[in-house]
């Protein structure tokens, strides 16, 4: 299939990636090759085969609805690149 600039921009947006012109051209080339490669699956007849998410049967796993200790706030914030007053710090989101 043809990998248009529009498709590359769309996929980059979905993936939350910012590409400059050179990277965009490279990404178009990479996507074309990879999609071209995986397209060989089209020749395989899968009519009537159900898509399988899990190799083994899985069931919901429940536990008692009881209060347990959660992680300390200081610990959770320990890896934050920016924090303030016990919260994660992000740029202003609402003007």
């Amino acid at each position: 299939m043809e990998i248009t600039d529009k498709l590359v921009s769309y996929v980059a947006e979905l993936a939350h990636l910012k590409l400059d012109d050179a990277q965009r051209a490279q990404a178009a080339q990479d996507l074309a090759r990879m999609i071209g490669y995986v397209d060989q699956l089209r020749e395989l007849d899968t009519e009537g085969v159900e898509p399988m998410s899990h190799a083994f049967p899985v069931v919901n796993v429940f536990r008692e609805d009881e209060v347990r200790e959660s992680m300390d706030r200081e610990l959770i914030l320990q890896n934050a690149p920016a924090k303030k007053d016990g919260c994660f710090l992000v740029p202003r989101t609402v003007e």
């Binding site: 996929v11 990479d30 999609i35 699956l41 089209r42 899968t46 898509p51 399988m52």
Partner: peptide
């Protein structure tokens, strides 16, 4: 990026679901 493409609306069935069928096989 390939993953985002395979899951995107319009391509999901032809790629992601197709691959799940191959997984069953």
């Amino acid at each position: 990026m390939l993953g985002a493409f395979a899951l995107s609306s319009g391509y999901y069935d032809a790629y992601y679901n197709k691959a799940l069928r191959v997984k069953a096989l």
